[in-house]
């Protein structure tokens, strides 16, 4: 009885310490498909050094790349490198604030965006600029 209980507990412990499956198995640059490399060109030299979970997230993002307009693809290219160089906390904050902004009425969203562009944005909206957080 005690022995079988111990075996169950040890199994649970191993299950608990095994890394989450989404944190492994991220492909290297040479393993990417041509469409993936095309979308990720701005970070070609950084790709292999990015954390595995970040690479897996980016692979989900680039699935949508072909659906973007040429103008959106240009913007994507411009922002991709600064985006990957933000800290995980900064990216989480950006996602959180973006979602919060979407919950506001359109007029309020536009006012906040305009205010940011007129004040802070003129300097920090440039590619590669360091976020204020």
């Amino acid at each position: 009885m005690a022995r079988s209980t111990l075996h169950v507990l040890i199994s649970l412990a191993f299950l608990a310490i095994s890394p989450p499956s989404h944190a492994s198995g991220a492909p290297l640059w040479t393993e990417l498909s041509i469409p993936q490399r095309t979308a990720l060109t701005p970070i070609a030299y950084d790709w292999d050094h990015l954390p595995a979970d970040q690479r897996l997230k980016l692979l989900k993002v680039v699935k949508e790349f072909s659906k973007l307009t040429p103008k959106q693809q240009d913007i994507f290219y411009t922002r991709l490198k600064p985006w990957t160089r933000m800290t995980p906390a900064q990216r989480d904050a950006a996602r959180d604030n973006f979602n919060k902004l979407q919950e506001l009425p359109k007029a309020e969203q536009n006012q906040i965006k305009r205010l940011w562009m007129q004040t802070v944005g003129s300097d920090s909206a440039q590619p590669g600029a360091t976020p204020g957080q």
Binding site: P82, A93, A94, N97, W116, M117, P131, G132
Partner: peptide, 11 residues
């Protein structure tokens, strides 16, 4: 807006 705008403290 660029992503860094949303991560900005002022924002």
């Amino acid at each position: 807006l660029p992503p860094n705008a949303y991560a900005d403290k002022t924002f």
